[in-house]
């Protein structure tokens, strides 16, 4: 078996931001002493005046981003997702979303990427919290190419965006020639027995699960959902009607992607569902790899959930 290369999506994030900033002087980065964790060193070297470091002050950081938007700048406010979202939630709600400011909130190392550092440093609540906020686009890229395209899209989109950028190594999962479109799911595998809808870092695990299911004679459809908001309602409903059962997979509380999909399914095409992710729990101590296995956010866990649906 050949080794599949894994990528840290932060590299795609910073390379794209520097590339954009070369020709778009509106672009500014705002950080909370998070240059290193955001891999923004190259940006700081190239555009020292356009990197504003407010120190460890997340409410100030997001407010500053909104003020920059008022001045015609496009602020990429980049910090560990756990601190950015939880500490500055009211600023995200009011200064970014309610104010409809063009600014990009970049949640770095989300989910359980910080592993052993524990639940204080995990950001598994972000998708559930942020999808509740009107007008906020919530993007969860699954690989480097999608990350790069999402950064480019967010730089041009005249509104507030939350962008989850992972550090956990992921393979390229999207097809050649892929184009990121908010609100459009990507069909990575056709199938009519059951549908697996995954987002972000764990899309690759959904594909692994589909291969396991194939050995059982189960033909699973795999959708990658790059935006939790807007959600691709059409793809979700087609999956419900065509396959009769949906498993959602996320490195987050299941009230994120899972909740969003369930709301659509229940309203328009009720089918049985299973939710793979973290359900109402703070994680125990463990590495990211160990934690994903612990919560069953892996190929076998996803496959088992799918088998339950098919067996009904």
């Amino acid at each position: 078996m050949t080794t599949v290369p894994l990528f840290d999506c932060r590299d795609a994030w910073v390379d794209t931001l520097v590339e954009l900033a070369e020709s778009d002087d509106r672009i500014v980065a705002v950080v909370n002493d998070s240059v290193g964790s955001s891999k923004l060193g190259p940006f700081q070297d190239r555009f020292p005046d356009r990197l504003i470091n407010v120190g460890i002050a997340e409410q100030d950081m997001v407010g500053v981003g909104a003020g920059l938007a008022n001045g015609g700048k496009v602020a990429f406010v980049s910090a560990a997702a756990c601190f950015l979202t939880a500490r500055a939630m009211e600023q995200i709600k009011v200064d970014a979303a309610y104010s409809n400011n063009h600014m990009v909130l970049v949640g770095q190392s989300p989910g359980m990427a910080y592993g052993e550092l524990g639940p204080t440093h995990h950001s598994i609540e972000d998708l559930a919290w942020l999808r509740a906020i009107p007008g906020l686009t919530v993007i969860v890229p699954s690989d480097p190419e999608e990350t790069a395209q999402a950064v480019r899209w967010a730089a041009q989109h005249d509104g507030p965006v939350f962008l989850r950028v992972s550090r956990m190594g992921v393979p390229a999962v999207n097809p050649d020639g892929y184009t990121f479109v908010p609100g459009r799911a990507v069909t990575l595998r056709e199938g009519n027995d059951v549908t697996i809808i995954a987002t972000g870092t764990v899309v690759t695990r959904a594909l692994d699960a589909a291969r396991l299911l194939e050995q059982d004679g189960i033909d699973a459809r795999v959708l990658s959902m790059p935006t939790i908001k807007p959600l691709d309602h059409d793809a979700v409903l087609a999956a419900a009607r065509d396959t009769g059962g949906i498993v959602t997979v996320e490195e987050a509380l299941t009230s994120g992607l899972g909740g969003a999909v369930a709301e659509t399914v229940v309203r328009h095409a009720p089918v049985p569902m299973r939710f793979v992710g973290v359900s109402d729990a703070f994680a125990p101590t463990g590495s990211i790899g160990w934690l994903l296995d612990h919560f069953g956010i892996n190929a076998e866990g996803v496959a088992e959930a799918a088998r339950e649906l098919v067996a009904r």
Binding site: R50, M61, V64, N70, S99
Partner: peptide
């Protein structure tokens, strides 16, 4: 109205961002 306000403690950070924007320009 330059900034939506109401919850306290929002305007000053936003104004700091506005001042940074002016300096950058």
């Amino acid at each position: 109205v330059e900034a939506s306000t109401g919850p306290l403690g929002h305007g000053l950070p936003i104004a700091v961002g506005m001042a940074f924007a002016g300096r950058l320009d």
